[in-house]
């Protein structure tokens, strides 16, 4: 069977779906890759939880500023038109449904859109949630970016989440190395699937019922 997409390719695929003019928060981890693959000609504004709207890319080392970092604590730049606000305003943007889209990583996504991405609940682990729970309930659309299965081959798309939840019914669409899947009131609908995989194989790798969407497309991306 053909390999699935690389993480860069999944990021590229997600970037295709971000419209011109969108205000977007990219979660820490894999989702930040999305910023590297924005289609030309679209003006997309990135928000970061620590009060930044209009975030630009990481500057070279000699231009970094300790007072200018993103939510992942990485050095960033400000683009023309950027603004700075305090944390309550920044989270008003999130919780108040002003962000068009948030892309979040996931440990598990359930068939009803429940998202688990902050804790595996493991004994002795130090908990930390950051802004994930606010983003999960606040952004107008939440895309989950995740490997289809864990390294041990266990499905990450599940009938019911077994890890502690980040948000109930939060996820609208799931992008994996194998498929693009919509979370709908009727269940999980597969919009796109990689070539060389048949639907029964995708079902076998998914821990929740899935059905093909009305039009089942091919999930593909250029070599990146």
């Amino acid at each position: 069977m053909k390999q699935g997409l690389t993480r860069n390719q999944v990021a590229w695929r997600i970037a295709r779906d971000i419209p011109d003019g969108a205000i977007v928060n990219l979660g820490i981890g894999q989702p930040v890759l999305v910023a590297n693959f924005l289609p030309a000609g679209r003006e997309i504004v990135f928000h970061s939880e620590n009060g930044i709207l209009g975030m630009g890319p990481e500057p070279p080392e000699d231009a970094q500023d300790e007072d200018l970092i993103n939510a992942g604590k990485q050095p960033i730049t400000l683009l023309p038109g950027a603004s700075i606000c305090h944390h309550a305003d920044s989270f008003a943007m999130i919780r108040g449904r002003h962000l068009d889209l948030c892309v979040l990583g996931a440990f598990q996504v359930a068939a009803n859109g429940d998202l688990a991405n902050w804790s595996t609940g493991a004994e002795g682990a130090i908990p930390g949630v950051g802004g994930a729970m606010d983003l999960a309930v606040g952004a107008r659309a939440v895309y989950a970016m995740t490997d289809h299965c864990t390294r041990r081959g266990e499905p990450k798309i599940v009938a019911r989440a077994t890890y502690p939840l980040t948000g109930r019914g939060a996820v609208d669409r799931i992008y994996t190395d194998l498929a693009v899947i919509d979370v709908t009131p009727a269940g999980l609908a597969v919009r796109e699937m990689v070539r060389g995989l048949d639907f029964a194989e995708l079902r076998a790798r998914t821990g929740a019922p899935i059905e093909p969407a009305d039009r089942l497309g091919v999930l593909e991306a250029p070599e990146l």
């Binding site: 305090h86 989270f91 999130i94 908990p127 930390g128 949630v129």
Partner: peptide
């Protein structure tokens, strides 16, 4: 542990 927006 408090969610960040809730803390703010």
């Amino acid at each position: 542990v408090v969610p960040q927006g809730t803390l703010a």
